[in-house]
Design a protein around this nucleic acid. Structure first.
Length: 434
DNA sequence: TCTGGGGTCCTAGGACCC
DNA sequence: TCTGGGGTCCTAGGACCC
């Protein structure tokens, strides 16, 4: 059996855990740069706040309803996510971290009644220990567990409580499938819907009962697997070992357009540095670097987007070399006649650091490089990211990001990971503020 | 004024190999 | 008449996910 546990409106819920004022009000969380709404608590959703709408378009609407707005605080969300995972690990033998707010779990040998009990217990523990509400879906395949989770949150099954849904029996699966649309299924979007329609399939039940080989002809092996998964025959197992990344990418839209190469160089250097931190955190080295830039696709201007990449002579994890390479890529794609709204740095062809083939003409002392990078990462870890950085990321000012930094006007404190930002608790009986 | 960021998997087709 | 058979690797693009 598989379980999918998923935190409800995760980012919004986390903000509400630490902020009593937010807990009383509708809450939305914005994407990077305060661009779009990416999370909304139940009450905010009930007000008709649309997900992925640009913030500036809904700002008035939100203000009118006393909605509390937050910028993304990934440090906080990540830490809370890890706390949830710890709880899941105590309840299940195997846990696959699927995303920041979702995990697949496996459990065997429980009757449907016990499954329900298990789900309720997990949900209650997660809530008690973190304050985060979750939904639990349990079924014989991942795709059905996803469906069960959907039902748990949106449309509780007859005889089952809200928040936990068990689709162990064929009958329960029939009921659930009859209550959703094709597009509600995991892995089904516009392209698949269009293709299965040619086979006369328009409902989830029809898809489950279709001939898998016929579906494969139109939708490939992905579609065929989907059919089996809907029948409760699992086609994918839990991935408990997080596989190493194959690519690393750091990219941002800028708060305003960049009109010269200077600030773009700073941005690219900073993105390269951040990508290197991700790389080293996983003990990886990169063999290729690419940089992309693009103009403002929403502005009525001559559009330009380009990517420039190059291979590195040897596998590399040193910020200095990768940033220098990224800057060369930037020179290659930069056109002075355009103004840029977004840029990014990608690292490719990654492999474990210890498996890097040394180069015959290597100039960098690898041991010294490794020690320097470790020291840099430790300092930035302890004193705030970007505290120690390459001069080329911001040569003339102590304050980075002045021209190209992200907008982030509503950020909450990093309550759980910075001593200076711990939440203050007051009003406990017999105590002063802590 | 303002419009996110970061991934994975699969397929088809070309190039090339023995 | 007849044009092998079985591979690998790479890339671009599509589709989908949170």
């Amino acid at each position: 059996m598989f379980a999918l546990v998923d935190a409800n409106s995760f980012y919004a819920s986390v903000e509400q855990v630490f902020d009593p004022d937010a807990a009383r009000r509708p809450v939305v969380v914005l994407s990077n740069n305060d661009g779009c709404v990416v999370a909304a608590c139940k009450r905010a959703k009930a007000l008709g706040v649309d997900m992925f709408k640009p913030f500036f378009q809904v700002r008035q609407q939100l203000a009118g309803h006393n909605v509390k707005v937050f910028s993304s605080n990934y440090t906080l969300y990540h830490d809370m996510s890890m706390r949830l995972v710890d709880i899941y690990r105590q309840h299940a033998e195997e846990v696959e971290i699927y995303s920041i707010d979702e995990c697949f779990l496996t459990l065997d040998g429980l009757s449907p009644r016990k499954l329900m009990h298990w789900g309720r217990d997990l949900k209650a523990t997660a809530h008690q220990w973190t304050g985060i509400p979750t939904g639990v879906g349990i079924a014989p395949s991942k795709t059905l567990a996803k469906l069960a989770n959907h039902m748990a949150k949106r449309d509780p099954m007859p005889g089952q409580p809200a928040g936990v849904c068990v689709l162990a029996s064929k009958h329960a699966q029939d009921v659930a499938l009859s209550r959703v649309d094709l597009g509600d299924l995991w892995g089904v979007a516009g392209g698949t819907i269009r293709r299965v329609a040619k086979l006369g399939i328009t409902t989830p039940t029809q898809l489950r009962d279709a001939d898998p080989n016929r579906v494969r002809e139109h939708c490939g092996v992905v579609g065929q697997r989907l059919v089996y998964e809907l029948r409760g025959e699992p086609c994918s197992d839990l991935e408990t070992e997080t596989p190493d990344c194959k690519n690393v990418c750091v990219s941002r839209s800028f708060a305003s357009v960049i009109e010269s190469i200077g600030p773009l160089r700073e941005a690219v250097t900073t993105f390269a540095s951040q990508a290197c931190v991700k790389l080293r955190r996983q003990d990886l080295a990169a063999h290729a670097v690419s940089v992309f830039v693009q103009t403002d696709r929403h502005a009525p201007v001559d559009q330009y987007a380009n990517t420039g990449g190059t291979r590195l002579a040897v596998g590399c994890f040193d910020t200095r070399d990768i940033a220098a390479t990224a800057l060369r890529c930037l020179e290659y794609v930069y056109r002075p006649e355009h103004h840029y709204k977004k840029a990014g740095v990608m690292l490719h062809d990654l492999c474990k650091r210890e498996r890097v083939q040394p180069g015959l003409f290597e100039t960098r002392d690898r041991v010294a490089s490794q020690r320097l990078m470790s020291a840099m990462d430790r300092i930035n870890q302890n004193h705030g990211s970007g505290r120690l950085r390459l001069a080329s990321s911001s040569p003339f000012t102590l304050k980075p990001c002045r021209t190209w930094g992200r907008r982030s006007d509503h950020t909450s404190p990093r309550y759980t990971t910075r001593w200076g930002e711990l939440p203050a608790v007051s009003g406990l009986p017999g105590s002063n503020t802590i």
